[in-house]
Design a protein around this nucleic acid. Structure first.
Length: 110
DNA sequence: AAGGTGACAGTTT
DNA sequence: TAAACTGCCACCT
């Protein structure tokens, strides 16, 4: 059982469309805690085994780097998932990150 | 109960 | 120009 904050983070991550990615800061900002971007990452740490499954692989840092890949079952699993969705990853960095970037705030037409 | 940690981000040197 | 430091707030021990 996770705190409401975690649940909220999970919910936002689940809103990320297939083939799209977002950043911790964007999620944090959406939750109204732009300064708590680290908490988003921390929440992702607990996203494993949470139902419905949380596409944590679609969440990267502001630079589009797969910083949390090491937290997956296998370090390359995150990259594999992203490539499956058509996202090219090179050197742990998403190419054309801005092109695949999806901001929850935009989804709400904010 | 108190202190330390972290899958970040922004600012400054 | 790039590299390094600090701030941040909820979770964990």
């Amino acid at each position: 059982m996770q705190s409401d904050f975690f649940k909220d983070v999970f919910e936002v991550v689940r809103l990320v469309p297939y083939g799209k990615v977002t950043s911790y800061g964007a999620i944090a900002k959406y939750l109204g805690a732009a300064k708590s971007a680290r908490l988003v990452g921390y929440a992702m740490n607990a996203a494993h085994g949470v139902l419905p499954l949380v596409p944590a692989h679609r969440v990267v840092n502001r630079m589009g780097m797969l910083t949390g890949k090491h937290h997956f079952g296998h370090p390359l699993e995150m990259q594999e998932q992203l490539e499956k969705e058509g996202i090219r990853v090179k050197d742990d960095c998403i190419e054309q990150f801005e092109l695949h970037f999806w901001d929850p705030n935009l989804a709400l037409n904010l």
